[in-house]
Design a protein around this nucleic acid. Structure first.
Lengths: 205, 205
DNA sequence: CGCTTTCTAGGTAGATCTGCGTAGACGCTC
DNA sequence: GAGCGTCTACGCAGATCTACCTAGAAAGCG
């Protein structure tokens, strides 16, 4: 059932970390665990659907800072802060930084597992969109500067002669660029091109 | 400076409510206040940029429930929970329900004002998008069924003859629909039409 | 030096879009 | 019944797009 879902545990406390490993392992999750933020940042590579469980207080790099680093890297995995040292301000900070939830130690394993399942489910929806955005940007990255320029004008509804006047080149050249960029993007219509552009711009919201 | 920003206070505690009124009034905000969730739900109409400050514990309808009601109504105003009864689980719940922050009573007025400013600023960005989505849907609502059908095919890059074959009508008729719908939407290109469609579909994410 | 890519430009032909006009059939409303 | 909006359909001319072709100049690479 959840054999393709994994839980990633980052906690310097051996006792808790190993307990969590056992809990999630027997719940059918794949489990990866790290004893420090450094080890995690070095060793973790997002694969399948997952949920990251972070301790708040750890040596050198704490949970909140680690959360920021994750967001910087654009890592698309829900994070649950699991800690014995939470208070309201820290919780607000963590949630604003993008944590899925903050959970206080200790908590029954059933409830924690439920939280993890919820986090993974909740993220699944948003992921599709982000993948589309990434794909759109990757495709647009294949274009040359000139082609991007032409593409942009196309998505704004300008015709070849119009663009030719604006860019100071022949309309035939504009046509050539249009053909080339549509071929590169493997699409056949300005409508599809506009979709790509809108999607690519979406992440900036 | 912030004469066009308002703060809405919902708190059954007269002392705190009036204190907040004074604080925000002298900070230059327009202030509206309600002594109960009921009064708020009945009397509040979103106008300009605002921030809602809710107490968590109130008779009959508490802050969390009120937050849910607001989200149901699609009210697009940031909410700050200002309360003396917060703990970590409640904070997580409130943040997941869409609160901008949870703040513990009492807090210095400077810090509270800063939070309110941050909430309004943060919401401003997202609001533009939501307004665009609403506008797009409103515009598309002007179209007849047939026109929407034609428009959809257009945004998928089909030509008039293609659509004529699919819809079982003449390509001239398709042309007529295309002209009509572009005129209705006050746009001139399929690119703009595609933008409208993508925007309108955006809210469903 | 060849090879590729990019940007530039042109030719030809057919398909399609755009903007103008007209018009019949149907249903709803005043 | 008259008026309005919708869906349907046609004609025509000019603009534009699409698809095929060639080709030169400049830049980068093995």
């Amino acid at each position: 059932m959840s054999g393709d879902q994994s839980v990633v545990i980052v906690d310097d406390d051996d006792f808790f970390r190993k307990a969590l490993e056992r809990v999630f392992h027997s719940a059918g999750f794949r489990v990866e665990s790290f004893a420090s933020a450094d080890a995690f940042l070095t060793g973790y590579i997002p694969k399948e659907e997952a949920c990251i469980i972070l301790d708040l207080r750890m040596p050198r790099i704490g949970g909140l800072e680690l959360l920021d680093r994750l967001k910087e890297r654009g890592i698309d995995v829900p994070v649950i802060i699991y800690t014995g040292n939470a208070d309201v301000p820290v919780t607000v900070q963590a949630m604003q930084a993008g944590a899925f939830a903050v959970v206080e130690k200790p908590l029954s394993s059933e409830l924690l597992i439920a939280r993890v399942r919820a986090a993974i489910a909740e993220t699944r929806a948003g992921r599709t969109r982000r993948i589309q955005v990434a794909a759109a940007r990757a495709k647009l990255g294949l274009l040359t500067e000139r082609e991007v320029e032409v593409a942009r004008h196309l998505t704004e509804g300008r015709s070849s002669p119009e663009m030719a006047a604006i860019l100071g080149i022949s309309s035939r050249t504009v046509d050539a660029h249009r053909v080339n960029l549509l071929r590169k993007l493997e699409i056949k219509s300005i409508a599809a091109l506009t979709r790509l552009f809108v999607l690519a711009e979406l992440g900036d919201s």
